[in-house]
Computed example of a mutant assay.
Amino acid sequence: MKEASPAITLQRATEEHIDGLVALYSYPQVSRQVLQMPYPSAAIWRTRLGLENERLLPLLALNQGEVIGNCSLEQYARVRRGHSGGIGMAVAPAWQGQGVGSRLLAAVLEVADNWMGLQRVELTVFADNQPALALYKRHGFEVEGQLRDYAMRDGRLTDVYSMARLQRRER
């Protein structure tokens, strides 16, 4: 993996980035690896951005203003799950393997640890997505289980791994 270019900036997603998010998640190589439908609409992304939701951090990687990656962190709203959050991410095919995902993930985990005080961050990843699995493991995530026939992809039910990264706090 190469280190991400210094020309890449990280920024919170805003209304002006919606078209870039639609473009990012419209790549077939991206849409097949995330738990979203292909051909996303701007209206769906406007809702997903949760511009009024303080518990949601939709973080983007930009190169010369173009959206090349996204990693969202959301703290769960339920009281008994408030110590936890979930992430979802995607990187444009041309930028995969260049450190973009690592920068995004490190940034949202820093917020999870030092601003939200989350003790558990979790995600699901397709079991055959070796680059993503390696990235998550490098950032402290561990596989907690395999969910069989979890999601439809390419016309077939496909397994995912449930992964989590725990921060043990002294009591």
Rank of each mutant, 00 (worst) to 15 (best):
K2M: 15
K2Y: 09
A4D: 14
S5L: 09
P6Q: 10
A7I: 11
L10G: 06
Q11N: 15
I18E: 01
D19E: 13
L21Y: 07
L21R: 10
L21C: 07
A23N: 12
Y25G: 01
S31I: 11
S31A: 15
S31L: 10
S31F: 11
V34K: 02
P38F: 06
S41M: 06
S41R: 12
A43G: 10
W45I: 04
R48V: 12
P58W: 03
L59G: 07
N63C: 13
E66F: 05
E66S: 09
G69K: 05
N70P: 09
Q75S: 11
Y76H: 10
R78C: 03
V79G: 05
R80C: 08
G82Y: 02
G82K: 05
G82E: 09
S84F: 00
G85N: 04
I87V: 13
Q96L: 10
G97I: 07
A107T: 00
V108P: 01
V108L: 00
L109H: 03
E110Y: 07
V111W: 03
N114G: 02
Q119Y: 04
R120N: 12
V121L: 00
V121A: 00
E122P: 01
L123H: 04
T124P: 00
P131N: 01
L133T: 10
L135I: 09
E144H: 13
G145M: 04
D149T: 05
D149K: 11
R153N: 05
G155Q: 04
R156G: 07
L157P: 05
Y161L: 06
S162V: 12
R171C: 09
